[in-house]
Design a protein around this nucleic acid. Structure first.
Lengths: 187, 187
DNA sequence: ACATACATGTACCGATCAGTACATCTTAAC
DNA sequence: GTTAAGATGTACTGATCGGTACATGTATGT
């Protein structure tokens, strides 16, 4: 299977898993919706779980790159970027394809910490926290570890709440809370 | 089926769904682990989805009662109770049976807002927000709606993060953030 | 002993599941 | 034309899925 076919499979499978869930999506549905044959799929992925992990890794890469880029566009200084995260979240949760956090869903469906799928979701969160920590450090936060963690918790809470309830009335209080926390640590 | 048998089924099914997920749990597994026959199950629940909804409703009741009681035990004043929520969360996420939020999992596996299961999860969140709003109002918050929402977002973020990464280093920053937000609104 | 209510046990239905096997097709290079 | 690589299509395996049907067992009241 060519690399481009493999990438196409992962991208399309990602969209289906994100929309419908992991257990609720069988391999036959993926065949039907991607137009890629089952034989081809099993040429690149030993198991369905391996395909799921590949989709999570792609999602991690696309997601962090997108957020990083957007946050840099919207925020001129590191301090501004910390707050800009919530503007980026606002754009996302109000988008038509918003369906919550793929990693939260993955760890919900694969709850054991020993599961490679759960581990991949945990890895994403770790990387994202590192991303936040970098910016908080650059912004001169008094306790960048704490601030990064707090902003991450608000982010996760906002995403989950927007997914369950809908996006209304979620980002404004999150952003206000973030502003307060940021101002408490950064001049 | 007697009421007590029905309650037993719901309680046991709740534990299984919470531990293993909804789609990953078939009716035969529930039969095997509860010792209740399939015929009996279908005497009280038209469908598996109906059983899931019953487990979510029970979970909502037990959860809110438990949190409410514990928060009142740990916090003398409404202001203290707002912060005490995070101590209660700390107890929960460090417990051996902690497996994240059942409602977040449910809405993850049933993403459509039109799904009765998703709607039941959303209802729980709405009720919990109301619970927080009551305490914030009693505590004399300047903007109780905002404060309640912010504390809920921190709570959701803490739960989700503890489930994905493990409980370490989650509640301390959440609690510190909550303290700051509370002090900003309540003398 | 009999009737009734409650419950169990399990075979069965049609469908779907992950993964395998293999025949066949398409394209490209030589 | 031949070979090789990449891919499709689909039947198949054994298992599981939600839900139904029905025979059988148990407990209780009369």
């Amino acid at each position: 299977m060519s690399a481009s076919k493999r990438d196409e499979l992962i991208q399309k499978a990602l969209n289906i898993f994100y929309r419908d869930g992991f257990h609720a999506t069988g391999m036959d549905k993926i065949v039907k919706e991607t137009g890629i044959s089952k034989t081809s799929m099993y040429k690149h992925f030993r198991t369905k779980d391996d395909l799921i992990i590949a989709t999570l890794r792609l999602r991690d890469e696309l997601f962090r790159n997108q957020i990083f880029r957007r946050v840099e566009e919207l925020g001129k200084t590191p301090k501004d970027q910390l707050l800009a995260l919530f503007d980026v979240l606002d754009e996302w949760i109000n988008g038509v394809e918003f369906n919550g956090c793929m990693f939260i869903k993955a760890s919900g469906e694969y709850p054991l910490h020993s599961s490679p799928i759960h581990a991949t979701a945990a890895e994403h969160k770790k990387l994202f926290l590192g991303f936040m920590l970098d910016i908080a450090t650059q912004a001169g936060a008094k306790n960048p570890n704490e601030l990064a963690e707090q902003l991450l918790l608000l982010k996760e809470g906002a995403i989950v709440t927007a997914h369950i309830r809908g996006p209304e009335g979620v980002i404004a209080p999150a952003r206000a809370a973030a502003a307060l926390l940021i101002d408490a640590q950064i001049d």
